[in-house]
């Protein structure tokens, strides 16, 4: 199992343990982390799974595609760390990764 830590804007922290192959959005939704909605089910079509990836993990998560960047324009508080959680597939190497969530997904 891979451990990913989600830290909400108010500091609330959740460790989740998941198998490789699911997305950062799915891992959150399946573990009832309501700061990530994932309304469209992972189609990069709603911008409700906006997350921040700390700089030290970005080499593993890669960067956003053009389509993803277009959708991120609808996110709140978007900055250079912003990604759509549905577009990041969790791998074994991401064990211990921290993901930050924005103040709101709406």
């Amino acid at each position: 199992m891979i451990c990913v830590t989600y830290i909400e804007a108010d500091g609330t922290s959740h460790d989740v343990h998941v198998d490789a192959g699911i997305s950062v959005m799915e891992a959150a939704v399946r573990n009832n982390i309501s700061a990530i909605e994932g309304e469209c089910g992972g189609a990069a079509a709603c911008a409700t799974c906006h997350v921040y990836i700390p700089a030290e993990w970005q080499a593993l998560t890669g960067s956003a595609s053009e389509d993803e960047l277009a959708m991120l324009e609808f996110g709140e508080g978007v900055d250079e760390r912003s990604r759509l959680g549905c577009q990041i597939t969790i791998t074994q190497e991401m064990n211990g990764m921290t993901v930050l969530t924005p103040v709101t997904q709406r």
Binding site: A45, A47, M71, F74, R106
Partner: peptide
């Protein structure tokens, strides 16, 4: 289709949360 749809949807969503 998105992204045109997304702007509409995000405006309407608050009535359906």
């Amino acid at each position: 289709d998105p992204p045109v749809h997304t702007a509409w949807r995000r405006t309407l969503n608050r009535f359906f949360t």
